[in-house]
Every structure is written in structure tokens, then in C-alpha cells.
Design a protein around this nucleic acid. Structure first.
Lengths: 127, 127
DNA sequence: CAGGATCCTACGCGATACTG
DNA sequence: CAGTATCGCGTAGGATCCTG
């Protein structure tokens, strides 16, 4: 038991730690993008699909379902014709977006540094 | 172009946006755990391997290499017998750990709420 | 519009064996 | 100790078609 371990109430490094399950969900590119997108307010299915370029309908559907199951996203159905479905953050989900969008914005701010590092690395050891 | 888009200098929702590349690396369970582990100071390969239960040697090796390529992690070789290799965060990597560990700690704090939500969801629509 | 059901394939990853 | 190399399987996920 090191100091590193001590600061976690649960041992996130432990194999079957439940925190891992949550981290599994969060540590997903699409989930991060979706949560970040929902932070702006409720959005309909195909709207998300259009906004987040490159996500397939299947994966969007799956990811939304997982996020809903985790209690992070709510799904509201309106009896219009055709039917309208709105996805939104739950209160729990809203407690997460600050952290998640911090991650997205870190990526944005430090993208150049990362790309530079990659170039340097690739030059040092060419394929 | 919605308001949601406006607050990003780059459009993270865009398919080939370089931010996506960074997010791809960050949105990885093992990378998060490794970065969180390295936050405590330099660690040797097999030490990480032992601490982070369930990670295979192959994936650890791969992930460390990617993190090094991204300039987030440094690799120091010491000419002992047998050889010693220490992994540590770079200055760039250190700017990330606050965010990353925030994610890990959110997972830890809200794990119970998520698990409860999952139970409720599963009860509502049994398989 | 908001998905469900299928088919199919690339590849992520574990297991194993070997090396400097 | 700190990895690389190879094989082989499982599955995530794209493409396509269909529906209330």
C-alpha cells in the first residue's frame, strides 16, 4: 500500500474495483463528445448524429443507451408526428460535464504541443 | 454553426479535427489509470504493471509508448544490471493530470450513484 | 424521425515464447 | 528487468436494410 493508493477511498488500480466500471464508460471518446455536446442543452438524436461527425447511428444509439443506464443522460419522448426524442444531461450528468469538458478543452489547448511532440518522436525513430 | 460550436476554437465535433486525436488518446481507460499513477512520481515498468491490476504487459507497453510519443510521459533508462527504466510525467503531462485525476476521482465519488442508476434502469426493462 | 436487426470484417488484446 | 514477436480469437463497430 503506497501513498499513491492511500489517497483513493477505493483502489482504482484494483482489477474489479467498481470505479473502473465508471471509468470504462467515461474513458470513451464518443461518450466524452456526446456529454460535451449535451452540456449546451437538450438535443435530438439525429441532431447529435449530424453534429458529431463520424459517429455511426449504431454507436450513437449504443452510447446514449449506456449513458442513460448510468444515469448521466435522460431520454424524453414527445408524441409528435413523427416522434421526437430529446436527450439531455441529468443532474448527475451535469456534475460530470465540468470535468469532461475540461478534458476536451485541454485537448484543444494542447493539441499543438502534442502534435509537435509526435513529430519529434517520429523523427527520432523513423519507421 | 451553433452556440455550442462557437465556444471551441477548433470544432471538436468535426471528424478530422486534430483535437480528436488527442481525445482518442486521453479517452482510454488504461491511459487515465497510468497517468494517474505516474502523478505520484517516477515508476518502473513492472511496478506499474503490478499496481494496475489487469493490464497486460503488451497493452502497458503500447500505451506507454503512445503516451511518450504524445509528449506526456518520459522514459529514462539507467545502465544498471539488469537495466532499470523509469517512466515519469513530462511538464506537459503534468498539466494534464489535474484534469485526468479529476475524472478518476469523479468516478470514485459518484460510483454509488451510477451503480444505483444502473440497477434502476435494469429493473425497469428486464432482459 | 429515431432507432432495431443483421451481416461482416478489421483489429484490439490476451497468451505464449523469446531476448538483451 | 524491460521489453519484442507471433499467433489466434472475440468483438467493437461500420454498412446496409427495415420499421413504428
Amino acid at each position: 500500500m503506497t501513498m499513491a493508493m492511500m489517497q483513493h477511498a477505493y483502489d482504482v488500480y484494483e482489477n474489479r474495483c467498481p470505479t473502473r466500471l465508471v471509468l470504462d464508460r467515461l474513458a470513451d471518446k464518443w461518450a466524452v463528445l456526446i456529454l460535451d455536446r449535451l452540456d449546451e442543452g437538450p438535443v435530438r438524436f439525429n441532431h447529435i448524429r449530424r453534429d458529431i461527425k463520424g459517429i455511426s447511428q449504431k454507436v450513437l444509439s449504443q452510447t446514449l443507451k449506456k449513458l442513460e443506464r448510468d444515469g448521466l443522460v435522460s431520454r424524453a419522448v414527445f408524441a409528435t408526428v413523427p416522434v421526437t426524442v430529446e436527450y439531455a444531461l441529468t443532474p448527475l450528468g451535469r456534475t460530470l460535464t465540468e470535468t469532461v469538458s475540461a478534458l476536451a478543452h485541454w485537448a484543444e489547448r494542447n493539441m499543438d504541443a502534442v502534435l509537435a511532440a509526435q513529430r519529434a518522436y517520429d523523427e527520432a525513430s523513423p519507421a
